[in-house]
Amino acid sequence: MFGLASPLHLRRKGVVGMNKRNFIYIAQSNPRHLYPRVDDKLKTKLLCAQHDIPVPRLMGVCRVQRHIKQLPDFLADESQFCIKPAKGSGGKGILVITERQGNHFVKPSGVHVTEEEVARHVSNILSGLYSLGGKPDVALIEELVQFTSDFDGFSFEGVPDVRIIVYHGYPVMAMTRLSTHASDGKANLHQGAVGVGIDIATGRALKAVQHARPISEHPDTGRALNELVIPCWDEVLELAAKAFEMTELGYLGADIVLDRNRGPLLLELNARPGLAIQVANGRGLEPRVKLAAKQAANEQLGVKERVSYSREHIAPL
């Protein structure tokens, strides 16, 4: 009615709203002192190395403004890389370079970038333009992920990733974000990327939404979205579940990409994952979270056991 959902209906579905997410999930499951483990991507990378979690390889870190002078030499032999702020959020400030033409770098969209522009971008990162609260930051230079071809036709110009919500170690809900022409190659749902809910049990597509409205085909490529299957699904789930031990955060969003050669890689973690995943799945988070919380309180399980519990018991809810 009036373009609004009935609160009774949503409650019956167990849909979680912003207040409940902030007040119960985040505030009660995520102690604030643990936030730096996920908010600072450099810390996350170092932690991942300790816990044997595969991530895109770190090529270098630019910590102070004078490092920027050394940047052209450092990047002289590189043609594919990615520069991102350690404390950025929501994909802000990420510069992806896929090609090199002489002194120019080329972005995935084909736009040329000069060395000076790269240097300015790094300078902006260091001065805190993209960090939370404008605090000084460092810039990470990462190896570019060699994306698997499994998503061909499902994504336009961009890089699809898989977002998995992990509650106290149990994967409870998953989706993949497919970039579109409208989203300018970014996997950002606000900007028009397509969100496809993924069945925790099988890794298969459930429902797809764009701008929070259900769709069945990719708006640019026209491929039927229900044919989408995430490869190495077991590995993907285990990777996400492992992030719980590493961060100790009870309510966590793990973003995972699939590398052609190395398999699933953990791209980044989020202590405040959004709620659009519920629309993409057509399901509410609440019953799944409750079961996961109950199971977590009952027995301490290893990563593999947790994943199989999720696939068997949490996925059908």
Partner: peptide, 21 residues
């Protein structure tokens, strides 16, 4: 209000597609 964990009006709007499932 600080301890209210129910839906916001904007939640009702954004989860409107859930009505169809």
């Amino acid at each position: 209000i600080g301890s209210y964990s129910g839906y916001r009006l904007s939640d009702l709007r954004r989860f409107e597609p859930m009505e169809r499932y």
